[in-house]
């Protein structure tokens, strides 16, 4: 009996470890492939069969990427735009989410639907209208245009996710606060907002990545102003030394460089995401 349990215990352990390894390979292998593609010279990149470990390592792709001013400028622009968009979406969105999740008033369903419906159109079909709007607001060719328009897809998402988190919080806390004489607004920012911190971090992270990855708006609204372009646009403009040549190795080097800050970001916020455990425990 005991041996039996031992067996199943170890089988479970091994199975679980195998699962972790599998997930690790599944998510990380393509990134590894990008990395080694960036390190290979073109002759090795196109040979059959492909090598799983580069035989010749060259840094020329990375050098080319770091010599590219437009790319570096793009990194800076992307960072600024994404941070502003996330902060704006979280500030504005958490207000709305508190109202929708905690306060009592009519028509909530419709408000949520209206907010959601903003994201139902494909980006491309609202683009011409948005282009006109951006021009009229005098924002064409500036990163302000991106900070504003990116809210179209980050804000509704933020509102919806945060609303559900606000709803999930226990009512007792709020009651206690009200009994203590707090106004609803004070209850919001003194008690409920700190409790949703892990949700804010998670939502913020997802919004950040969505903004970081955006391509079509950035391409359209900053076309003639290379100084305002984001990194995704900068990468797609990589040209080889010969016209028509697609420098695959350089594009891969750039994609590695673009991804690393996000991985660092996730590692930094690791503890925050973990804090969700304690926040959940408060609920009881």
């Amino acid at each position: 009996m005991a041996g039996n349990r031992n067996f199943s215990y170890w089988a479970g352990r091994i199975g679980f470890s195998a699962l972790i390894v599998l997930i690790f390979l599944y998510t990380a292998f393509p990134f590894y492939w990008a990395l080694i593609s960036a390190l290979k010279p073109e002759s090795e990149l196109i040979q059959t069969p492909a090598t799983f470990f580069p035989q010749t390592i060259t840094l020329q792709n990375f050098e080319a990427v770091f010599r590219n001013d437009a790319f570096l400028r793009g990194l800076l622009n992307s960072t600024v735009v994404s941070i502003v968009v996330v902060i704006a979406a979280l500030c504005i969105g958490s207000f709305a989410a508190y109202a929708l999740g905690r306060l009592k008033f009519g028509g909530k369903r419709w408000i949520l639907y209206v907010i959601l419906s903003m994201t139902l159109f494909p980006q491309i079909s609202i683009l011409p209208g948005l282009f006109t709007l951006v021009n009229q607001l005098g924002m064409y060719g500036s990163i302000t245009s991106l900070m504003t328009t990116y809210l179209i897809f980050t804000l509704p998402f933020t509102v919806w996710v945060l609303t559900s988190f606000f709803r999930a919080l226990p009512a007792e806390l709020e009651q206690a606060a009200l009994v203590d004489g707090c106004t609803p607004f004070q209850t919001f920012y003194k008690i409920l907002l700190p409790l949703t911190a892990p949700a804010l971090v998670t939502t913020g992270l997802l919004a950040f990545i969505a903004a970081w990855n955006e391509y079509l708006f950035s391409l359209t609204f900053t076309l003639t102003q290379p100084a305002a372009q984001t990194v995704t646009v900068a990468i797609t403009k990589f040209t080889g030394v010969i016209a028509r040549n697609e420098p695959f190795g350089e594009i891969m080097a750039a994609s590695v460089v673009v991804t690393v800050p996000l991985i660092v970001l996730v590692l930094v916020f690791q503890r925050r995401i973990v804090q969700g455990l304690t926040a959940g425990a408060v609920k009881g």
Partner: peptide, 12 residues
């Protein structure tokens, strides 16, 4: 690591 795929811009 789990977030890597999401973190690489889709276009790339």
């Amino acid at each position: 690591v789990m977030l890597i795929p999401w973190a690489i811009p889709t276009a790339i």
